[in-house]
């Protein structure tokens, strides 16, 4: 089965979703990412969705799950590059992605991750925002 590639960049993992994901592919990404966070002791995950012209409730939920799971595994997640039409549609759909940090582009997302990781003591784990 095809997989979404996960790149390691220092203490961060970088995922660029370039295909319209069917549900099993989104679930595989969720599983692969959590495993890679543990394997690499990654402190942050950056997910670039700028190529996605649709984020429906399933993909939105998967992004939320990834953010929640990575937080429990002591890593921050930032989703970057959401298209304006996708943001409008997600809110109207009823899925405003509470609990998912977002940034407009990869550069701002990396900045946000660095700041989030620098502000945490090692082993801080999950904490209320």
């Amino acid at each position: 089965m095809e997989r979404i590639p996960i790149l390691k960049m220092g203490e961060f993992l970088l995922v660029t979703i370039q295909v319209d994901m069917h549900d099993r592919l989104a679930l595989a990404l969720q599983d692969d990412l959590t495993q890679r966070i543990v394997d690499t002791s990654a402190r942050g995950v950056l997910i670039d969705i700028s190529a996605l012209d649709v984020v429906d409730s399933f993909i939105g939920r998967t992004l939320g799950n990834i953010a929640a799971m990575s937080r429990i595994l002591d890593a921050e997640t930032v989703v970057v590059g959401m298209r304006p039409a996708v943001a409008i549609t997600l809110v109207e759909l009823g899925l405003p992605l509470h609990g998912v940090r977002t940034a407009l582009d990869v550069e701002k997302g990396m900045g946000l991750l660095r700041k989030a990781v620098a502000g945490r003591r090692p082993g801080d784990g999950y904490r209320a925002q």
Binding site: D53, V55, D56, F58, R83, A85, T89
Partner: peptide, 17 residues
Amino acid sequence: NLVEQTKIVTGASEIAR
């Protein structure tokens, strides 16, 4: 337009699932 397309496609995706 793009926003309308996105709403139509997203609705279709929900019901197709």
